[in-house]
Write a protein that binds this DNA or RNA. Structure first.
Lengths: 207, 207
DNA sequence: TCGGGATTTGACCCGATGGTCGAAAACGCG
DNA sequence: CGCGTTTTCGACCATCGGGTCAAATCCCGA
């Protein structure tokens, strides 16, 4: 159920099941309460294990959190990685937007875990931000810039274009309560967002 | 320094100064650590008071947090409130965008405090969301819809248009570390954002 | 200057929480 | 089935952290 891949080799069936359960429970609790707000008892209960038993699988609260984040960034960036320099520019970007929004819809817990980490100043993944993340974004930004130079899309600062995709899609997961509170009953936030963002980015990208 | 207005009448100079200091310190700590992550000792130290002394001014940790949030929503919505139905549509909206981004730049702590609250599911301000906030947004959404009907701006779902302004501007405060990590040295995120968002919304709003 | 209220604080309380330990129970394989 | 290994957990521990209290100190108007 979780995104994080815990299917490491050399682990018994029980180990896989329990690690899985723990990470899934932890994802729910950490994303909803933040790192300090989450308690081992809560996580253990959600995972259906006793606290000592849980600590048999992960050395500490920190270790659980770390394992979660480790798997997260990679999966989170998959949609961007899939942006194909050889594809049709507007179609590629629109596909990215829709995929990213779909991630928000399917994995709001992951999105919120990430948001929590950012709000705290990213103490545990700063290295990944300035390393892998920056590298990937720079690479794709170059692609966007090429497309712009060739007149396929509007000439926009590529990094900020990417930020805008992140901001607009993650907003629907991270601020879900606000979105629903403001829209009121009888709305499907994600369906509406999908249509709205489609319009927005098509207009924005038009040269 | 804080946005929150603590200058209630009937308070001595010392009271005003200390309440002010406590709220300012608390804003910093709560926004950076979340509610549970913040400790009274931290806040007290930042405020330059002893913990018991601080609790002489506010009955509890909860009370401090509450006082902070109470002042926040109001100030936070001022820019939207200022959107004038009688003004020139595009200019009004663009002014709102710029004002909102300026809020992110000047008051990132407030933005993050708010974001933290949202991520936790807004347990302490849900009433305000479905009450005052929804009312204000509905009112302004109606204005936007009128403008669209009259052909002054593109026909877009007004609520989502407002969400997009929130998402794009708050992103620069809430995800500040990420933005700076990805952009690298030699960038002024807010200056670039100001220009980018100007372009984005002008293209979006064009009928 | 003096008295009384406002302010400050050191010492303390206690429930919550992350983490440990040793022993019991369950597993699985030869 | 027998036995070493893995898994489970009740009881416990130490620290943290929110909050209390009584006593001291400060401040200010009469």
């Amino acid at each position: 159920m979780t995104i994080a891949d815990t299917n490491r080799k050399g682990a018994t069936r029980i180990q896989r099941r329990n690690r899985e359960a723990i990470l899934d429970a932890a994802l729910g609790v950490f994303s909803a309460q933040g790192f300090r707000g989450a308690t081992l008892d809560q996580i253990a209960e959600h995972a259906g294990l006793s606290k000592p038993n849980m600590l048999y699988y992960f050395a500490s609260k920190e270790a659980i959190h770390e394992a979660l984040l480790a798997g997260l960034l990679d999966t989170w960036l998959d949609p961007l990685r899939a942006l194909d320099p050889k594809g049709e520019p507007v179609a590629e970007i629109m596909a990215y937007v829709h995929r990213k929004l779909e991630m928000s819809r399917l994995y709001p817990r992951e999105s919120r875990l990430f948001a929590n980490e950012m709000l705290q100043g990213a103490p545990r993944i700063m290295a990944a931000l300035t390393g892998d993340l920056k590298a990937l974004v720079d690479e794709k930004a170059a692609v966007l810039q090429d497309w712009a130079r060739q007149g396929h899309i509007a000439d926009l600062p590529p990094h900020h274009l990417i930020f805008s995709i992140w901001a607009l899609t993650q907003h629907y997961a991270d601020f879900d309560v606000q979105v629903r509170a403001v829209l009121g009953e009888g709305h499907d936030p994600y369906a509406e967002a999908d249509s709205f963002l489609d319009t927005l980015f098509r207009k924005l990208l038009a040269p």
